[in-house]
Amino acid sequence: MIVDVEEIDSRFLRRLKSEFDESYLSCFQCGVCSASCPVIEIEGRFNPRRLVKMARLGFKDRVLSSEYIWLCSMCLLCEERCPQGVRIPEVMTALRNLAVEEGYIPEPMRRIQRLLVESGRLYPIDDFTAEERAERGLPEVEAEPEFVKRLAG
């Protein structure tokens, strides 16, 4: 596959810079993040180093439409080990925010959002849970919290 430099979007680069600090510019592609990443063990195609590289090059559509930016588990191991102080989980968060702005939301995420809008919860509070909570002396919770619905909407 040949890289099409026409895909590079310089506005995207500026946006990225303003979205968080410029630490990701000092990435020198050593691979510490990928080799540290627990997600890779499950999904071998996920590679934080490559995502940073592609973002760094300004491949806006490719990066934002990639479902991989949603796979980071925010364990921060890469951030802990990165020799150049790049805060990769923050890069991922910024990319997700930009992706949403551009309308790139993967279907599972949409479903989660719908669930939140409709019921205010990902998992319903059924009688069983309510009883369990009461037994353990935990306070009652709203079955369908309105503020979550509003937020998710």
Partner: peptide, 25 residues
């Protein structure tokens, strides 16, 4: 690829890192 950790295994020790050329750990 920069080595991230060493894992002892018997007399040997496992060196873990990414091979960036192969995109494989």
């Amino acid at each position: 690829g920069k080595v991230v950790e060493l894992i002892p295994e018997g007399d040997r020790i496992i060196v873990r890192g990414e091979d960036m050329m192969l995109n494989r750990i």
